[in-house]
Design a protein around this nucleic acid. Sequence first.
DNA 1: TTCCGTGCAAATGATTTGCAGGACT
DNA 2: AGTCCTGCAAATCATTTGCACGGAA
Lengths: 159, 159
Amino acid sequence: MKRFVEVEQLLRTKGVRLTDQRRLVVRRAVAYLHFTSEELVRDVKAFDPSVARGTVYRTLALLHQAGVVEKHDFRYGPPNYEVTFAKAHHDHLMCIRCGEIIEFQEPRWEPMQEAAAKRYGYQLLSHTHKLYGLCGTCQRAGAKRLAKPPRLHVEEVVA
Amino acid sequence: MKRFVEVEQLLRTKGVRLTDQRRLVVRRAVAYLHFTSEELVRDVKAFDPSVARGTVYRTLALLHQAGVVEKHDFRYGPPNYEVTFAKAHHDHLMCIRCGEIIEFQEPRWEPMQEAAAKRYGYQLLSHTHKLYGLCGTCQRAGAKRLAKPPRLHVEEVVA
DNA sequence: TTCCGTGCAAATGATTTGCAGGACT
DNA sequence: AGTCCTGCAAATCATTTGCACGGAA
C-alpha cells in the first residue's frame, strides 16, 4: 500500500518542496517503518550513493515536524525512528534490564490523547508512549542486583 | 520533603552500593527534578569539583535502570532528564513548531498503564508519554509553511 | 536573481569507555 | 585477594552546520 504517496501529499499541503532526494528518503522510510538513522542512510545510499547523510537528517527533521516520524531513544543501542503516520497508534513496553521491547495497542488511549491535546488548544499530530519496567523473567532473575543490560540492536527486538 | 532518602533506600534494596559521589548526584537530581546532563554536572561539581562527568552519567544510568529517572529528548536543545520516582505521574504536550512544552496530568491513564504492563507480565517502573502537535498560535500562524523552530533551552519551557 | 536544497567535510554535543589507582568486602 | 567505583582523558556516536554550487521559482 503506497503510503508514501499520502506522505508526499501531506508534505505538499505544508508547502514543503519535494525534491528527488526527499522523495527517496520518504519512500525508504515508509518501506522500513522502523529504522535507525544509520540504516536509513545506508539504504538510501544503496539507491543513490550521491545523497548526503546531512540530507537524510534534514529530511528526517522535516518529517518529524510534519508529524510523520517519531524518534525513540530507548537507551539501548542507537535511537530509532518510526513512521507513525497513517499507522494504527501503538505504544511500547520495555524491560529495563534485558532490553526486550514489546509493541502493543490500546485503542482506548487515542480519544483520550485527542481530548488532552484539545484541552490546551493543540492539534495533535503524533505521540510516543513508553512504559518501562521489568519483564517476568527479569523480575525472577534479578530480584537484587541490576545486570548491565546487553547492547541490543533495536530492530532485533521491536516486534 | 527529603525524597532522596527514599531513592537511596530503593537503590539499596536493588543492591546498588551507595558511594559519596552517587549520594551527591542523587541529592542534586532530586533537588532539581528537571535538568539537563550539563546542569547536573555543573551543579554536582559546585558541591564537589572532584566528581567526574563520567561518574554523573554512570549514576544517571543506574537511576534510569532503577526506574527513578527518565530521559526526554524533545529535539529542542539538549535532552533533559526528569526524576519520576515518587512523583505524581504526568505527561508532556509539545508544539512541534514553536517548541512550547506543557506538562499535564491525566490520572485516568495510570491504572490503564498498570494494566497494560501486567498484561505482558511486566512490573511497571516508569513511563514517558509525549504528545506532539501544534499549539493554537502556531495553527493560526503557520497554516502553510513550517517555520524553523527556535532553539529553546528546555528548562525555560517545561512548566 | 533570489531562494532553497544539496553535497561535502568539519564541527558540535552528548555520552561512553579504557585505563590505572583506590576503596570496599 | 578480588571486586566494584572513580577520575581522567580520549574515543565514539549521532547529529548539525558552514560553505559554495546548482537548480527551481
